[in-house]
Design a binder for these strands. Structure first.
Length: 258
DNA sequence: ATGACGGTGTGGCACCGA
C-alpha cells in the first residue's frame, strides 16, 4: 500500500494535475496541502469519481489540507488539539488498510518567514504544540504516519546551498531541533531509510529557473512510527509533475508499506 | 538586491509563500 503527500499550491488550479497523477499513481492515501479554498469549494465529486473519499479542512486563500483515501477516513481531527489556530494546517484521520489501521497526520507546517520575526515565533510555538499533541496521538495510535510540507530541511543534504543558507529560514538550528524532537517521539524519516540520489529535493522556487538548475530543498517529509518502520518498502520523490504546465512548486513524495 | 515567479483577492496593486 502507498501513502503520498503533495503541496499543490491551489487545488483550484491544480485539480486536473492531481487527477492525472492519481490515475497514473493510484495510491491508497494522498495528503494535500495548500488547498487555498474553503470547504464548500472543494471538488468532492470529481475526486469521488476518481475513486477517493475526502476529509477536508479548507481555508479561503491560504493554507487548507485534505486527506484523500480509497476507503473512508475515520475519527477525523482538525488542527492541533490544545493549540488554538486561526489557520487550517493539520488534518488527522484513521484509515483502514488490509494490514490494519493507520493514523495519518497531514500537516502544512508554518513557513516562518525569517528567524526573529513574529511568524517565526508562531512557527516555534506551532511545532512545540504539534509535538505535545503527537505524543498523545502516538500513544493512542501506534501505527502512525506524520507527513506533509514541514517547511524544514532535516539536514544539509536537504538543501542546494547549505552553507550559503545556513541559519536562514528552513535551515535554522531551532527548526532542525524541532524536527529531531519529532524523530525522538519514535518517528523515522522514511526517505532516509534508503540510499537516495544526491541532491534530492521536493520543492524548487518558481524563479530563476530553479528547477532546471536543481536549486531546491527537501522540505516535504514522511515520518513513520516505530511499529510501521519494518513495513516500509520504499520512499521516493516524484519530480515529474514539476515539469507540468503551471506546476506546483512542490512535488509528491510517496512511501510504500507492506 | 526592496529583484526574480505564481496564487489570491475585489485589484489597477499588495500580500504571501519558501
Amino acid at each position: 500500500m502507498k501513502i503520498a503527500t503533495w503541496n499543490i499550491n491551489s487545488l483550484t488550479v491544480r485539480l486536473p494535475q492531481v487527477l492525472d497523477w492519481l490515475a497514473a499513481h493510484p495510491v491508497d492515501v494522498l495528503c494535500l496541502q495548500e488547498l487555498k479554498l474553503s470547504d464548500d469549494k472543494f471538488p468532492m465529486a470529481a475526486l469521488e469519481a476518481a475513486g477517493y473519499h475526502s476529509a477536508v479542512f479548507g481555508q479561503k486563500t491560504y493554507n487548507g489540507v485534505a486527506i484523500l483515501s480509497r476507503t473512508p477516513a475515520r475519527n477525523v481531527v482538525k488542527n492541533i488539539v490544545g493549540f488554538t489556530d486561526e489557520q487550517s494546517r493539520v488534518i488527522a484521520a484513521t484509515v483502514d488498510m488490509p494490514t490494519g489501521e493507520i493514523r495519518v497526520v497531514n500537516g502544512y507546517f508554518v513557513n516562518g518567514q525569517s528567524p526573529g520575526s513574529e511568524k517565526f515565533d508562531y512557527k516555534m510555538k506551532w511545532l512545540e504544540s504539534l509535538r505535545h499533541w503527537l505524543r498523545d496521538e502516538l500513544a493512542q495510535h501506534p501505527n502512525l504516519v506524520l507527513l506533509g510540507d514541514f517547511n524544514i530541511t532535516a539536514d544539509d543534504r536537504d538543501s542546494f546551498d547549505p552553507e550559503g543558507l545556513r541559519e536562514t529560514i528552513h535551515h535554522t538550528s531551532e527548526e532542525r531541533l524541532h524536527f529531531q524532537a519529532l524523530v525522538k517521539l519514535g518517528l523515522t524519516d522514511a526517505f532516509r531509510m534508503f540510499d537516495q540520489p544526491e541532491k534530492s529535493y521536493s520543492w524548487w522556487d518558481y524563479r530563476e529557473f530553479a528547477f532546471r538548475r536543481n536549486r531546491g530543498l527537501r522540505i516535504d517529509h514522511i515520518l513513520v512510527s516505530d511499529p510501521l518502520k519494518p513495513l516500509v518498502r520504499s520512499c521516493v520523490i516524484d519530480k515529474l509533475p514539476r515539469k507540468n504546465e503551471r506546476p506546483s512548486d512542490h512535488v509528491p513524495v510517496v512511501v510504500e508499506l507492506a
